[in-house]
């Protein structure tokens, strides 16, 4: 599959001496939804800012659909829409004026029908003549999204799009993201809400301390790193894991009512059969059993801890 953005050996050291990015390589595939995860200060926003032209890179190169972002910035930037993390909007302009301004700035011919459609999709149409400063925070976020979509970008960056956003807007936004993707737009998002990445993304990249730790298909990542737990609800509480079962490396929950067995879904044998046999032999009865799979959040926390 061809990559629409390719980042090579990209580094950024700020004037303060802080090294935000350390020699990053990353490829974004055409038409995918790519989620970039990482703790605060990991370099997510710096990476996006460099690709969009807001921050100058210290070293390295970025190509957007074959256009170098420095030497061929016009072609590169014309393809990109950016929704920034902060609610940075004009104050005294109307919604319609600011969104139309964005379209003009990106060199697109006036198209009131398109602007109206974008506003309608974001439930902003009835606010089009309102001054931006009179809008609520959630509405301002919608305005920022409308501005980014006003010039029909082929690549959309969403930097923490759902931070401090109500449920309704989140739903609207994901509807828009899905329909954009269906029309072939590539979407790169950063988020703190890992459930969102889990739900929306095709691939996931994890960045920490300015380094890309991992890039993987979401399904593959979940499969590879996902651990399953088998929980056995006991008939009688235990004080400790019985010695006969030591080989299975079981743990006991807080009040001794559950035995927990952790196993790797990738392993050739899960070891469940042997465990159940041994339980039978020791005469420990259980009332119920259920399995849980680790979420992306667990995987993420695990990886970031490892990196430290």
């Amino acid at each position: 599959m061809s990559s629409i953005i390719s980042v090579r050996d990209l580094s950024k050291t700020y004037a303060s001496g802080f090294q935000a990015l350390k020699s990053i390589d990353l490829d974004i595939r055409r038409g995918e939804i790519f989620a970039l995860l990482g703790p605060n200060g990991a370099g997510k926003t710096t990476l996006i800012s460099i690709v969009c032209g807001i921050v100058n890179p210290s070293e390295g190169a970025v190509m957007v659909d074959g256009h170098d972002i420095v030497t061929d910035y016009r072609a590169a930037r014309a393809m990109i829409g950016l929704v920034p993390q902060e609610l940075t909007t004009d104050a005294f302009e109307t919604v319609w004026a600011t969104v139309s301004f964005s379209r003009g700035l990106f060199g697109k011919k006036k198209n009131p029908a398109h602007i109206a459609k974008v506003l309608k999709d974001l439930s902003l149409l009835d606010k089009k003549d309102d001054m931006i400063r009179t809008l609520s925070g959630g509405m301002k976020r919608r305005v920022l999204i409308a501005k980014a979509l006003s010039h029909e970008p082929r690549i959309l960056f969403l930097d923490e799009p759902t931070a401090g956003v109500d449920v309704e807007l989140r739903k609207d936004m994901w509807d828009i993201v899905r329909s954009l993707r269906a029309s072939g737009v590539t979407i790169i998002l950063t988020t703190h809400y890992i459930e969102e990445a889990e739900e929306m993304a095709d691939r996931i990249g994890i960045i920490n301390n300015g380094e890309i730790i991992l890039v993987e298909d979401k399904a593959e990542l979940m499969r590879k790193l996902g651990q399953k737990q088998l929980k056995l609800e006991l008939k009688k509480k235990l004080d400790a894991v019985p010695g006969e079962l030591a080989a299975h490396r079981l743990t006991l929950n807080g009040d001794g009512s559950e035995l927990i067995y952790t196993y790797d879904t990738q392993g050739e044998r899960t070891g469940i059969t042997a465990l159940l046999d041994d339980l039978n032999r020791t005469g420990i009865g259980f009332r119920d059993l259920h399995t849980t799979q680790s979420s992306l959040e667990d995987i993420f926390v695990g990886l970031v801890r490892q990196g430290k």
Binding site: C52, G53, I54, Y73, R74, A75, A76, R77, A78, I80, L82, P84, E86, T88, T89, D90, A91, S102, L105, F106, G107, K147
Partner: peptide
């Protein structure tokens, strides 16, 4: 001051 300059910097303008 308001931060809206991000748009100007990310636009295909010289």
């Amino acid at each position: 001051f308001t931060g809206t300059i991000y748009e100007l910097l990310s636009a295909p303008v010289s």
